[in-house]
Amino acid sequence: MITLQQVSRVYRRGADEVHALEQINLAIPDGTFVALMGPSGSGKSTLLSLIAGLDQPSSGNVAINGQMLSGLSEDQLAAWRAAHVGFVFQFYNLIPVLSAAENVEVPLLLTRLSKAARRQHVETALQIVGLADRQHHRPNQLSGGEQQRVAIARAVVVDPDLLVADEPTGDLDAKNADDILDLLRRLKNEFHKTIVMVTHDPRAERYVDQTFHLDKGVLVKKEE
């Protein structure tokens, strides 16, 4: 369960204060596929960063499966992310000099798994996203859709409870966007992942369980 209580995030920009999020209260049950939507600058990416443990709120509490993220040090947060969160980004953020399999292996380097076990996990993850036959290709040898599927394999390879996706279809054509949303939906259904996705893509609403709309840092609407 993801729980946010009275969460605000204020940035300082010179002498000005920017209120990116104000008094957000949110509860997302386990195994739910959630979309965060809203216009640019509405605070949805900031909210995603707080849920993923990439940033800390200025006030309020963020708890993921009972773990309070507020008060954790940078290193503690990094260790928590490594074990519990998988990331999917708009521009895939694959490491260009590593092959698909090596990219998927990166999060496993932070575990105690042996090389053989890591290889096994990587193969499984690539099979889930349907790219087992492309594992030796570098990112520049893959299409956008394939790169995003490699990124999803990297996100699930450590079997995290939570997947966060920031505009995962933002750089893809309609066909690939549908494939990626379908894959995320399948991860939720078959592997019981909790998925929080920031998106502008209206077709996302067909795939998610809930949509939260934000505007000017405030949660304005929730759709089931």
Binding site: E74, A78, A82, N93, I95
Partner: peptide, 14 residues
Amino acid sequence: TAEIGTLRALGFSR
């Protein structure tokens, strides 16, 4: 820079 951000997000320490 983006790669560094990605590695940090994935859990690698400073």
